Simulated scan of single mutants.
Amino acid sequence: MRLVNRVVVPLRALLALLFLGLVVAQLLSMPGQLAHMAEQEPELAYLRWPLLTFAVLELACAQVVIVCTWRLLTLVREDHIFSEGAFAWVDAIVWAMAAAWLMLVVVFVYFTALIRGPGLPVLLFGMVLAGGVVVLLMVVMRALLRQATSLRTDLEAVI
């Protein structure tokens, strides 16, 4: 358990920094970057607000995952990770990741129809594939947590 405590503190520090970085990206970086794009390439200016909405929502999904991970770390530290309470946090992670993936699929379909060159569509397709793998991996991890929780409950009943 000491190892878990030594890992949880630095992981939480990194999660807090990541969350802060995402807030900065949502409030400053993305709006500024897309405003600059609209000024430099007026023919793409109509994409400014849809892309900003997409970026802010994608980053919000990442923030949900960070908050849920923070709470799951608390459950790990308190040795309550194999409880029914953990499933709400894991479900929120799965739903946030699924929402982010679906938005990415929509952007992929839109830009594939819009752009003639292969570069961006291929990159987006790779991101869609990787995102799908991560979402499905989280579903499998949730099933493993369910199985481990059931086994622990059965073991506690025997003892």
Rank of each mutant, 00 (worst) to 15 (best):
A88D: 05
A88L: 10
A88P: 01
W89C: 02
W89G: 00
W89R: 01
W89F: 10
V90G: 00
V90Q: 00
D91K: 05
A92N: 07
A92I: 03
A92P: 00
A92Q: 13
A92W: 13
I93S: 02
I93P: 00
I93C: 03
V94Y: 03
V94K: 05
V94H: 04
V94E: 03
V94D: 09
V94L: 10
W95C: 04
W95M: 07
W95D: 03
A96N: 03
A96H: 01
A96L: 04
A96E: 02
M97L: 13
M97W: 02
A99Y: 06
A100H: 00
A100R: 01
W101Y: 14
W101A: 00
L102Q: 14
L102A: 15
M103Q: 06
M103I: 11
M103K: 02
M103W: 13
L104A: 14
L104R: 15
L104N: 12
L104P: 02
V105P: 06
V106L: 15
V106H: 08
V106A: 15
V106N: 06
V106R: 06
V107M: 14
V107R: 12
V107K: 13
F108Y: 15
F108G: 07
V109A: 15
Y110S: 14
Y110D: 13
F111P: 01
T112R: 10
T112M: 09
T112W: 10
T112P: 07
A113M: 15
A113F: 11
A113N: 09
A113Q: 12
L114K: 12
L114M: 15
L114D: 07
I115S: 07
I115D: 08
I115M: 09
I115A: 05
R116E: 10
R116A: 14
G117S: 12
G117D: 13
P118S: 12
P118A: 08
L120H: 08
P121E: 02
P121T: 04
P121H: 06
P121K: 04
P121M: 06
P121Q: 04
V122S: 14
L123D: 09
L123A: 15
L123M: 12
L124G: 06
L124N: 01
L124P: 02
